[in-house]
Design a binder for these strands. Structure first.
Lengths: 332, 332
DNA sequence: ATTAATACATAAAACGTTTTAGTCAAATTG
DNA sequence: CAATTTGACTAAAACGTTTTATGTATTAAT
């Protein structure tokens, strides 16, 4: 049987309230009793019942995190970073993986609410025309949330992300300056800020170079390995000069498809990614990509969330951090 | 303000108990009142307070999961699989990332206990001579747990994993049959079952081939990318014929080190991994590796855990699933 | 010596549920 | 028709904490 604070109090021959005060390092008990109670709690391996604690304090020491796809190493890194941060402030991580489905995201948020999380971090999905009721619900209940890595165009703030537009601009610019023209762009749903911003960067680069792109070069899909693979098989008949991928994970699929078709990178075609995953540097042809300052992104996200949990909503609400282009051999 | 069941009861003009029975589809209320209560709950977006529920029912609908390193895509896959399974049975996932530190594992288990999880899934760390008090604590409290992917030699069961010994045997056998002799083995701490079994396979393969290995060829380290990289730089002066890596993630580091030193795979040296990560197939030289039936492992793990949560402890306690060797070009 | 302040201790209320035991009327049984 | 069973409902207890209000003994201040 699990011991309760009552048992500890009885053994220590003090009242329950005294035991509580002692264990929580609150004023109102003498040092003697505090030590006595603590010693007994330690000895009998007492752990407080979190449900009871959370019921009365209305603080759960839990944070909910929804990511889209943990098999994308970028998001794995993200989860890892948040895990470390939550550790530092003794929060527990409730994790949901939405698989890029708004319905799943919604479902996780609902359970987070019922589990009384103190705050929520959301990596938005790519689905269009989403039903945002769960976000309004969070707002109404006063549960703080922060978007990370992206946001919904209908629901921009608060949000912490890297300047995707700028990163994509620089990288497309790099390709154009190398004389490439037919540059495909494989991306997620353009209603999602994450994709829209990168697309903006792509377009701006063409504009500033006084060149134009064909709308067919922009392909919207689910931004993962398998879809990257499939899409590439379909579009290679048109022989693009380069393929710009919305992220490295998708680029992995693209590269695999090219390999299967015996198309060489960068001789026959250039490929660029985004995120600078570990694997990007050990490929046959190391991948040109854009590094996101993921540690900073997570730190900032958590900072904003903590401020809001503390009741301070008066901070800057959208935050862009600077990315860093990594030119490697996949762009000849 | 968040509505409570009292509010719902008041609005529906029934007692709190009636409301509870209605919402939980329990007998004791008429169909009329059940519907009325449910409609009102729906209308006002009522979500029950999980802390209160869990306090009284002693069921939290939470499962704790500790993994060692989520940046290893193998464990990311594992988390993904468990997430899906937990979804199906409407459990919430509490995640801890131990970073291969027994102290961290312990800390997570403690918080899981205090949060009243119904069960725990553990991917053991590599640390030697570990302090197992947290596991005994789980046992004493009657909180079921299952080891997944490996186990502690001092604490074997219950455990679900693939037959690592067999997989490693087959793959080393393959190398020996190709005439390679000086086969290095980079692995984790051999006190951990995960490493010990693979090492057993390695040794058995030599024995069955009437060949012998040098103890120096077996290198113990933390099984991740960075350590794979470092260790390789240190041992290349000895010019091995092949390097067998305890997992693909470590193999990535090995390959990167070889690349940096301009040593060619498989011309100069063979490399094999374990896990069959996505990236293994798109490398310059696709990696020979062993696929673990990860979906089955997770399913089985969760099955055992569920049975134990239901009170049935009389099942088989250690379960080995069959792996599958994938010969690719990294072994000439 | 009286009063005021302080330190320590505790009983009881509260948090939001589920469950137990019980009430009462209506329906069923003999 | 009386006795019993059934069905719908409810009041109250319970879960394990924290917090509030209150009391008592000790110390400090006048």
């Amino acid at each position: 049987m699990k011991l309760t604070i009552k048992d500890i109090a009885r053994i220590a021959e003090v009242s329950v309230s005294a035991a509580s005060l002692a264990l929580n390092d609150k004023a109102g008990v003498s040092e003697d009793t505090r030590e006595k109670v603590k010693a007994i709690a330690e000895k009998f391996n007492y752990t407080p019942n979190h449900s009871a604690q959370s019921l009365i304090t209305r603080r759960s020491r839990c944070i909910g995190l929804v990511v889209t796809d943990i098999n994308n190493p970028f998001f794995a890194m993200l989860v890892d970073e948040f895990n470390k941060l939550l550790d530092k402030f003794s929060y527990t991580l409730l994790l949901g993986i939405s698989g890029d489905k708004i319905a799943a995201e919604k479902k996780y948020i609902e359970t987070f609410i019922s589990k009384n999380v103190e705050g929520v971090i959301i990596v938005p999905t790519i689905e269009t025309n989403p039903d945002m009721t769960h976000l309004f619900k969070l707002k109404n209940l006063g549960i703080p949330f922060v978007f990370c890595t992206s946001a919904y165009t209908e629901f921009l703030e608060p949000c912490v992300m890297s300047d995707l537009r700028e990163g994509e601009y620089q990288i497309v610019n790099h390709l154009l300056s190398k004389g490439m023209k037919k540059i495909y762009f494989i991306t997620g749903d353009r209603n999602l800020l994450l994709s829209k911003l990168r697309l903006d960067g792509y377009m701006q680069a063409f504009k500033d170079a006084n060149l134009s792109y064909h709308p067919d070069w922009i392909i919207e899909t689910v931004p993962d390995f398998n879809h990257g693979y499939q899409v590439t098989l379909n579009c290679m008949s048109d022989r693009p000069d380069a393929i710009v991928c919305v992220n490295d994970y998708l680029a992995m699929g693209v590269i695999k498809a090219l390999k299967d078709q015996r198309i060489c990178v960068p001789q026959d075609i250039s490929v660029v990614g985004y995120d600078d995953l570990l694997f990007a540097s050990i490929l046959e042809t190391p991948l040109t990509t854009v590094r996101q300052p993921i540690g900073d992104i997570c730190m900032k996200t958590f900072e904003v969330l903590r401020r809001r949990i503390a009741g301070n909503y008066h901070d800057e609400s959208v935050c862009f951090l600077s990315p860093m282009v990594k030119i490697r051999e996949s762009t000849k």
